[in-house]
Structures are given as structure tokens and as C-alpha cells.
Simulated scan of single mutants.
Amino acid sequence: MTDDTRNQRSQLAFARLLPKLFRGGQAFVGVEASLSGLSDEQATTRPDGLPHSVAQLVAHVNWWNRWMLDIIEMGQAQPYPKHAADTWPDVQPSDWPRVKNEFYELLARIDPHAARPDLSNPVNHEETIGELLADMALHTAHHFGQVVTVRQALGAWPPPGGGDTW
């Protein structure tokens, strides 16, 4: 097998895997199910003992996904936030529909990048497009695990779309 063939197979495998990492599937409950059935009030309620609401977690994921997509789509580094708090927007109950819709809009922007032939090209100092996409997927999955925990603490799990309860 040639290096070119190996690279093409790796590229195809990554292109098939990436949407699963963002959306869930066999390894974890999908993001659509994780967010389904939440009222504006539930989404913005921070349970006692937990640092964030579902809406805050999703807004934070949106902040970083937008930042990384801007780097990928503009092809140049973006300024890093000065403080972590800058990436945690305040979310009111009336904001939840917008925050949720923005999450899905950003997710749709990610899809076409998975099959790019230039995933190994650097775009942010030393990071490549593929590395940024993988970072986005891992960051999203990490915080969606927290979404499940918040929903469990609220007594709002499993969602109507289903979810593991064992």
C-alpha cells in the first residue's frame, strides 16, 4: 500500500468518524437527544452543587466552536481569550432558543470540513485543521457529558429522545 493510499484511507476514516464524535451515536447519547425536551427554565437552571446550567454549557461550546471555525474558515490564527470567563456567556431563559439554534448552526458549519483534503495544513500556529476539528469534537463531547449530569440533577433525564439510564 502506498503512502498516498494510506493517507486517503485515513482521510476517509476521519471524515466518517468526525460527525459521530460531534453528534454522538454508539459511544454516547447524541447531542440532539441530550438537548431535547428542555424548557427555557430547565435549560437555564443551575442545580445546587454544579457550576453551570445546560444553557451555559452549550453557550460555552458555541463560543469555542465559533472561534475554531473562524480559524479554519479564515485560515489564520485568532486572538486567544484573555480570561476563561470570557468564554462563558451569561444565558437567560429567553436566550435558550437562540443558544440552542446557534449550536446546531455551528454543527452544520463543521460538517463540510471533515472531508477536506487539507486536514494536515497548519492554520493556528502549529495546529492543523484536523487537530482543530478533533479538539472541537472532544471539547463538545466533554461538555455534553456535563449536560447529561446537569439534566440528571434537574430530574430531566432521560430526555424524550431517549438516553442511557444505566
Rank of each mutant, 00 (worst) to 15 (best):
A59L: 07
V29E: 15
T165L: 05
Q42I: 04
K20T: 15
V61D: 11
L69C: 12
S34D: 12
H142T: 14
M136D: 05
L132N: 08
T44Q: 02
L17M: 15
A84K: 13
T128I: 00
R46N: 00
F22H: 15
V147K: 09
V99G: 04
F28V: 15
T44I: 04
P79Y: 06
A15H: 05
N62V: 06
P122L: 05
D86T: 01
Q78L: 06
M74L: 11
A115V: 02
F144R: 13
V54I: 09
P93E: 11
D164A: 14
D164I: 09
S36I: 08
H139E: 10
L12G: 01
S34N: 12
L133M: 10
W63C: 03
D3Q: 12
M1T: 11
K100G: 00
V91L: 07
D70L: 08
S120V: 00
W157P: 03
R109E: 12
I72E: 08
A115I: 02
V123G: 07
Q11G: 04
Y104F: 15
V123E: 08
H60S: 08
T45P: 01
L18C: 03
E102Y: 00
W67Y: 13
D90Q: 10
H83V: 04
Q76M: 08
M136F: 01
P19C: 07
R116N: 08
F103L: 06
T128Q: 01
P19N: 06
P89F: 02
P19Y: 10
A77T: 13
P51E: 13
R9Q: 13
P93M: 09
F28T: 14
V150P: 04
G25Y: 05
P112C: 07
V99I: 12
T87D: 07
P159T: 08
